[in-house]
C-alpha cells in the first residue's frame, strides 16, 4: 500500500494510477502500464484523477489484466520473453475465465491481449466437431435437421473421416 509519505517521491519518479474493480478492491498500477489500454489512456488524458473505477470488471479478471499490462510495460523484458509470457498467460485457463478476460480487454481496449485471448479461444475450438462445439459452449442448434443435412450432403466427404482431435 502506498502511504502519503511515499506517494510524493513515487509520483515524482513514476506516476501511478489506482484502479478500482467492481468488487471495490483497488489496484495500484504504474501509468506506463495503464496507458497500454486505450480506454484508460483516454481517461487519464481527460482528467487528472488518479482513481479510475471500472464498474464491470471483477477482481480476478482485473488482476490478470493488470499483470499482463505491467509485464508488457516493463522495458527490461525482451520481446521474446513477452511473447512467451503471453503464451503462458492464456495457457491452462478455462474457457469461462477467457470469456471474462476477453470482455474486460474489450472494455479496456487492450488490443494485443484481446488478440491473444481470442486466439486461445479459437485454439480450443480448433479441430473439433460441430457437435463438440455446440455441446461444450452450450450453443443451441438452430438449423432444422433438413437444412443441416442439406449443407452436409453438398460436401459429404468432408465429414467421413473427421474425428475428435488426434493425440
Amino acid at each position: 500500500m502506498v502511504t502519503t509519505d511515499e506517494k510524493g517521491p513515487l509520483t515524482a519518479k513514476k506516476k501511478s494510477v489506482i484502479i478500482r474493480s467492481c468488487d471495490g478492491d483497488e489496484f495500484l498500477v504504474s501509468e506506463s502500464a495503464a496507458v497500454l489500454s486505450t480506454s484508460l489512456k483516454k481517461i487519464l488524458e481527460e482528467k487528472e484523477d488518479r482513481l479510475i473505477h471500472l464498474s464491470d470488471i471483477d477482481n480476478k479478471t482485473l488482476a490478470m489484466v493488470i499483470a499482463y499490462l505491467s509485464t508488457h510495460a516493463d522495458d527490461g523484458l525482451s520481446d521474446d520473453l513477452k511473447r512467451s509470457f503471453d503464451q503462458e498467460f492464456v495457457s491452462g485457463k478455462e474457457f469461462d475465465v477467457l470469456k471474462y478476460l476477453v470482455l474486460a480487454t474489450d472494455t479496456l481496449q487492450v488490443t494485443c491481449l484481446c488478440y491473444t485471448v481470442a486466439k486461445k479461444m479459437a485454439d480450443i475450438m480448433k479441430n473439433k466437431l460441430v457437435e463438440w462445439v455446440r455441446r461444450e459452449f452450450d450453443i443451441q442448434n438452430d438449423y432444422t435437421p433438413e437444412a443441416e443435412a442439406e449443407i452436409r450432403r453438398l460436401d459429404a466427404w468432408a465429414w467421413d473421416d473427421r474425428q475428435l482431435e488426434d493425440d
Partner: peptide, 14 residues
C-alpha cells in the same frame, strides 16, 4: 460457459 453471450465483434475476432 455460454459463448453466445459474447458481443458479435468479439465473436467475429475469435
Amino acid at each position: 460457459t455460454n459463448i453466445d453471450s459474447l458481443p458479435d465483434d468479439i465473436m467475429f475476432n475469435i
